[in-house]
Amino acid sequence: MNRTSQQRARRAGLAEAASDGPGDVLPVGIARIRVVLYACQPMHSNAQPLAPLRTFAEARDWTIVAELIDMAPHEVPLTERPLRPRLIEFIDSGQTDGVVTSAWSSTEEKIRR
């Protein structure tokens, strides 16, 4: 979804107004959605796997708390990927409300097995 700079500014203004000014906590005690961007790509790829995930999160005015890229082929199960423990730590510690990932790396398996 392509937004103009004016539309982005308006959305940011609405989000700030809803939270009583800049910050992450809404007046009713509901925090803005915090997400971790997670992608997996082969080691020698020049792809920018986080760009579409970042666009998706920013279009919803979500707060990105971390960006993780596992350098492994997509075929490697999530349970065997090096950054899985860090991803689980974000979830278990309550530092994130969700994970934004591509359909390729999320539809075949669940984060926890």
Rank of each mutant, 00 (worst) to 15 (best):
R11E: 15
R11K: 15
R11W: 15
G13N: 09
G13M: 10
A17Q: 13
A18W: 02
D20M: 07
P22D: 09
G23S: 10
D24T: 14
V25T: 12
V25C: 15
I30G: 07
I30M: 11
I33G: 00
R34P: 02
R34G: 05
V35P: 06
V35R: 03
L37S: 04
Y38G: 01
Y38I: 02
C40S: 06
C40T: 14
N46E: 06
N46V: 03
N46H: 02
A47E: 11
Q48I: 04
L50H: 14
L50S: 09
P52K: 01
P52Y: 01
P52A: 05
F56N: 07
E58G: 05
E58P: 01
E58W: 01
R60E: 15
D61G: 07
W62F: 11
T63Q: 12
V65R: 05
A66V: 10
E67V: 05
E67A: 14
L68F: 13
L68S: 14
L68G: 14
I69L: 14
D70V: 13
A72N: 09
E75S: 12
E75P: 01
P77W: 06
L78F: 09
L78I: 09
E80G: 00
E80H: 12
E80T: 04
L83H: 08
L83A: 04
R84S: 13
P85L: 14
I88P: 03
E89S: 08
Q95W: 11
Q95M: 15
T96G: 00
T96W: 02
